[in-house]
């Protein structure tokens, strides 16, 4: 067990190190952007004097290094700073919106991951026969359509024609879970259709790869049914690649939902980020970037750890 703990500790500390590196990248990246927030706030009415005053007021004249460390210091105590354009607390604003984004991602994941794996298993079971071809063709078609197009198609059919789900995914804190689920159903389905094909195809490929192994023949010659062979003997050895692609898609569900949030007017992180990028509100962009990076690194770290745990050679050393 100690070997596994050591490996996990290694992954975690690497993840933290990586996050530091990313924080530097984000900070440097936003510094070298042309123009600054003072210019964008003042817009047409900017005079050199106004600009100088506003910059002084916003602390933009401090050296970059000291601004970086005061920003980093704030993050450690949960303070992401103040939005320059609205003067609101970024941590609070992000808190609510991150919750919404995570909720949407979770609903999409709960729908898409089991379906993707099940479809992958079915495709393996009926390899090169019509169910396999049908699954491949439909998932490929759904991944080939741009997500805004899928979103509008779903709105048209389920929202407008059938009237099953609301076309605008409005959520507010007092909602019940059922109402909330109902509200996010269309964006969640859109996301599901987008990520399904990738996960399903990877599951199929990973399991087919394992199906070449000699122990699959052993299982077959024991008289096990095809599905039992796939489920019990192939899947446990294909977990590592499957987990990796699932985590990559989960990360996408969280950090890549901008378009879907805009289509469904969903109050999530993506909208928040886009709004503030256009206003050149650097602290908000930095904070969002850091949160996305943390989620991305965290999920990939989790994939690594699950891969380690799924390997019997590491779990049970000689």
């Amino acid at each position: 067990m100690s070997l596994v703990l050591k490996l996990i500790a290694q992954r975690v500390s690497l993840g933290i190190l990586l996050l530091f590196a990313v924080s530097i990248l984000i900070f440097v990246g936003t510094q070298i952007l042309p123009g600054d927030v003072a210019e964008s706030i003042l817009g047409q009415s900017a005079t050199p004097e106004n600009l100088a005053n506003l910059r002084e007021e916003l602390g933009l004249n401090e050296p970059a290094l000291s601004r970086y460390f005061s920003w980093l210091g704030g993050i450690f105590v949960g303070d992401l700073g103040t939005a320059l354009t609205s003067g609101t607390n970024i941590s609070e604003a992000i808190g609510a919106r991150l919750g919404n984004t995570l909720f949407l991602a979770m609903v999409a994941a709960f729908i898409s991951v089991p379906i993707a794996i099940l479809l992958g298993l079915l495709a393996v079971r009926y390899k090169d026969r019509w169910p396999d071809k049908l699954i491949s063709a439909t998932t490929l078609a759904s991944i080939s359509l741009p997500e805004f197009f899928i979103g509008y198609l779903l709105i048209l059919f389920f929202g407008v024609k059938l009237g099953w789900f609301p076309t605008v995914a409005t959520v507010f804190p007092e909602m019940t879970l059922g109402a909330r689920l109902n509200a996010v159903m269309l964006p969640a389905l859109t996301l599901t259709l987008v990520v399904l094909a990738h996960m399903m195809r990877m599951t199929r490929a990973a399991i087919l790869n394992v199906m070449q192994s000699a122990y699959i023949e052993t299982a077959e010659l024991k008289g096990l049914s095809s599905f039992k062979i796939i489920w019990k003997h192939a899947l446990p050895n294909a977990i590592s690649p499957v987990v990796n692609v699932v985590m990559l898609n989960l990360a996408y569900l969280i950090v890549g939902v901008v378009v879907v949030e805009v289509i469904f007017v969903y109050p999530g992180m993506g909208q928040y980020l886009v709004d503030h990028v256009s206003k050149r509100d650097v602290p908000v962009v930095q904070a969002c970037g850091l949160v996305f990076a943390a989620i991305y690194i965290g999920l990939n770290m989790l994939a690594d750890i699950l891969s380690i745990l799924s390997n019997p050679r590491l779990r049970h050393p000689k």
């Binding site: 192994s213 000699a214 122990y215 023949e217 052993t218 299982a219 003997h233 446990p236 050895n237 799924s310 019997p312 050679r313």
Partner: peptide, 10 residues
């Protein structure tokens, strides 16, 4: 090859 014939996961 029993080494290949046994499933490493069980």
């Amino acid at each position: 090859s029993a080494a290949a014939g046994f499933n490493p996961a069980h």
